[in-house]
């Protein structure tokens, strides 16, 4: 099992316009559909090694569509 983490990501489908910046930064966290819109992979749980990339994806999304949730 990869180390546990507190972070989860979520792409707001109402906001995403398919800039694909998130996928470019963290391809293991975001997948793209046939129209190029992004979706979190699986339940959006972020492996510890990817935490920084998750924040970067959020910081670079021009549509403010990426949420990083700390629970």
């Amino acid at each position: 099992m990869p180390p546990a983490t507190k972070l989860r990501i979520r792409v707001d489908q109402k906001k995403c316009q398919g800039h694909n910046r998130c996928h470019q930064i963290a391809p293991s966290l975001f997948e793209l559909d046939e129209f190029g819109n992004a979706h979190e992979i699986g339940d959006g749980r972020v492996p510890a090694a990817m935490e920084e990339k998750a924040w970067l994806a959020k910081a670079n999304c021009p549509e403010l569509a990426v949420d990083v949730i700390e629970d």
């Binding site: 316009q17 398919g18 800039h19 694909n20 190029g36 910081a59 021009p62």
Partner: peptide, 20 residues
């Protein structure tokens, strides 16, 4: 520059189709 939410390909519904 790591934090770069630039708008070169537009913002909102008209986001550039050709951005990729």
């Amino acid at each position: 520059r790591e934090n770069n939410r630039h708008a070169a390909f537009g913002l909102g519904i008209h986001r550039c189709v050709g951005s990729n």
